[in-house]
Amino acid sequence: MAPKTTRATQALDRAGIRFTLHAYDYDPDAPRIGRQAAEALGMPPSRVLKTLMASVDGRTVCLLVASDREAAMKRVAAAFGGKSAAMMKPADAERLTGYHVGGISPLGQKRPVPTAIDAHALTDPDAEIHINGGGRGLQIRLREGDLVAALKPTVVPLTEPR
């Protein structure tokens, strides 16, 4: 069972942001972990954001995109003012964030890194959205506006339009 307190939940508590935790049965063999989380929670995949760790010109960055979308590396590079972007190897992402793959949260990482949220994933500051809670099988539900306030991300298109 996923823990009820993680570095991600502690970061939200410190910021005074209201949220709810939602545990689900994590499937490590799921082909798409974000989509599996959405299905397990009974949420549309567009309302469950996956956390991706990438490198832009050698700098570590964090990306949040809807679980049914794929980040476009040219857009990721442009979002951070770089020339090229690539997804980070899972072992490197774990080492840099302090979280396990499948449980990486954009909140409470070992060291803060520049973060971007796909503009296509945000619909309304008062709408609720899910992000990883810092443990496999643990999601945080909070308002989009509160997520933006907590992360202070760049909000730009990171995926291709549908």
Rank of each mutant, 00 (worst) to 15 (best):
M87K: 00
M87R: 01
M88I: 09
M88D: 13
K89G: 08
K89F: 05
K89N: 03
P90D: 11
A91M: 13
A91Q: 15
A91E: 15
A91P: 11
A91I: 14
A91F: 10
A91T: 15
D92S: 12
D92I: 03
A93P: 00
A93M: 00
A93L: 01
E94Y: 07
E94P: 06
R95Q: 14
L96C: 08
L96R: 11
L96Q: 10
L96V: 15
T97I: 09
T97M: 09
G98R: 06
Y99N: 04
Y99K: 00
H100D: 10
V101K: 02
V101L: 10
V101Y: 03
G102K: 00
G103M: 06
G103P: 03
I104H: 01
I104D: 01
S105G: 09
S105M: 04
S105Q: 06
L107C: 07
L107E: 06
L107S: 06
L107H: 04
G108Q: 06
G108K: 02
G108F: 08
G108D: 11
Q109A: 07
Q109D: 02
Q109S: 05
Q109E: 10
K110P: 01
K110H: 09
R111K: 15
R111L: 14
R111G: 02
R111M: 13
P112Y: 02
V113A: 13
V113C: 04
A116N: 10
A116E: 10
A116G: 10
D118G: 14
